[in-house]
Nucleic acid binder design. Sequence first.
RNA 1: GCGGGCGUAGCCAAGUGGUUAAGGCACCGGAUUGUGAUUCCGGCAUUCGGGGGUUCAAGUCCCCUCGUCCGCCCCA
Length: 414
Amino acid sequence: MEKLQSLRGMVDLLPQQMGVWQQLEATARCHFQRAAVAEIRTPILEATELFARGIGEATDVVGKEMYTFLDRGERSCTLRPEGTASVVRAAIQHGLLNQGPQRLWYGGPMFRYERPQAGRQRQFHQIGLEFLGFADARSDVEAIAIAWDLLADLGVQELALELNSLGSADDRALYRQQLVAWLEQRRDQLDPDSQDRLARNPLRILDSKNPTTQALLQDAPTLAAALAPESRERFERVQEGLTALEIPFQLNPRLVRGLDYYSHTAFEITSSQLGAQATVCGGGRYNSLVEQLGGAPTPAIGWALGVERLVMLLAQVGESQATAPDIYVVSRGGLAEGQALVLARQLRRSGRAVELDLSGSAFGKQLKRADRSGARWAVVIGEDEALLGQVIVKNLQEQTEQPMAAAELLSQFA
RNA sequence: GCGGGCGUAGCCAAGUGGUUAAGGCACCGGAUUGUGAUUCCGGCAUUCGGGGGUUCAAGUCCCCUCGUCCGCCCCA
């Protein structure tokens, strides 16, 4: 029979890895709460139309990476490739924006149909933040600061924040024209990938990894020069804010985010320890998206961080936590086993983490498992103890033991 | 979608065309029918990702296929 296994690029998270995940999620929750950011959860399945309109038909994410299929009602459905479009959709649908600006976060699985490689899977997880209805440059700074502080608190080392401004939609359209005109003159000097992008998504050529293309771009018109004075001033205020918060950053004039909806501030937080997919967190401002999805014009900024990539960094830091019980209950014989079942439940009700050995094997075997479970205490009930209403409490670390009444045990561990 | 590396047990692996596929970890059982370490003994791949071919003989060579990893594209 064919071996059953998970679909390509879909990975299981096994019990041993969950400690890092849980710690990460708890830390994120804590940071959001302290920053007065509320959680929102949206379905992982949406109408294909949402992403086509929100992210942009021309992007790779929409053009070739979506998990799309027809449901039984012949509607085109897509497993969400990112979170922002869904959050904005939900905010519009439920009139959240009529109640004032929204500070939201989300977390969960995203899906992209790509070849897996280091730091890239078909199902992966993101934790993201969206500030809807905030235009001030300080909101950009605050959004970035929350991401930065979260990563720092988790103990991630050697992070770099890269920053750029794409300007307003007008600035970008103007620059796009300049760049395309300039590159058309030199089309034959571009690598094939970039030639392709010239028509589809020319700004992304700036980000090319091809060295000759990069050399050519040295003399190309710059995005910074195309920014209107207001855009430039806005960008300066973002930088001043980051400096005031002592968050180090590097200006990267080639940083162009892939999704169509970005404008003004764009940023990435990267780690050199991740291989080719180095971005841990990426985001930026998207002032036109809400309107594009049918809401009132609403400025917004957000980011998403890749949980698997973050976990890779945390694993390198050596972060991991096993889930050991406080007490391991060992019993043998009908009467004793019955009492152990009751006792374990009572201990749990008083808040203890208790593992009950259900094997019925010899005491030696059970104690061996007690030892390996990492529990501090073992409670032993044999037939003799059961008849007397007693238990033996062993301290597994100090290798000491003492008999006591079951009731005494309960009051001691309450 | 394109390029390259790799598939031997739950994990790490030896194996260079020649009888029954090393070893280690983990796990299970026993020595110890009521006590954890260590030790000792035993168990744990009818077969090398799958299919086809070459050969007297294939884990080993060839072809196809699937999976996986790394890179490109792209992104978190």
